[in-house]
Lab assay of single mutants.
Amino acid sequence: HSHMSHTQVIELERKFSHQKYLSAPERAHLAKNLKLTETQVKIWFQNRRYKTKRKQLSSEL
């Protein structure tokens, strides 16, 4: 499990705020920019979407 830097997370968050789903080319581009693997980016987005979904569910209770 590799640790992401604060800067990388900020960039991922910024991208996520604009779009929740990335196409393969977008993911490849973002990964390259942030010096991450595409898998890391993919998993981060999956986890981030899951967290957002959970938060929405709990706020509706």
Rank of each mutant, 00 (worst) to 15 (best):
H18Q: 10
H3R: 09
H1K: 13
L61F: 07
A24D: 05
S23W: 03
F45V: 01
N47V: 09
L61H: 13
T52F: 14
R27S: 04
T52R: 10
F45Y: 03
P25G: 15
K51C: 15
K35N: 14
Y50E: 10
K35I: 04
L61C: 15
S5M: 04
F16E: 02
L34E: 00
R54A: 07
K51H: 12
T52I: 08
L36P: 00
K20F: 04
E38F: 05
K51P: 06
R14D: 04
I10Q: 12
H29W: 12
I43G: 04
E11I: 06
H18S: 11
K35H: 09
I10F: 09
V41C: 04
K53H: 08
K35W: 04
M4Q: 02
F16M: 02
Q46P: 02
Q46T: 05
K32F: 09
Q40H: 02
Q46D: 06
L36R: 00
Y21A: 03
E60T: 05
L34T: 03
Q40W: 03
E60V: 05
E60A: 07
F16I: 02
Y21L: 03
L36N: 00
K35F: 11
S2N: 10
H1Y: 09
Q19L: 10
Y50N: 12
H3F: 10
H1G: 09
V41M: 02
T7V: 12
K32N: 08
T52L: 14
V41I: 11
R14T: 05
K15E: 06
L36Q: 00
K51D: 08
Y50F: 09
S23G: 04
W44L: 02
S17W: 08
K51R: 13
E11K: 06
H18A: 08
L61N: 14
Y21E: 00
S58I: 10
L34D: 01
T39M: 13
Y21V: 03
T39Q: 13
H6F: 08
L22V: 04
V9F: 07
A24Y: 13
Q56S: 14
K15D: 00
L61M: 15
H29M: 13
S23E: 03
E26I: 04
P25K: 14
I10N: 07
T7R: 10
R54H: 13
E38H: 04
L12V: 01
I10V: 07
Q40M: 05
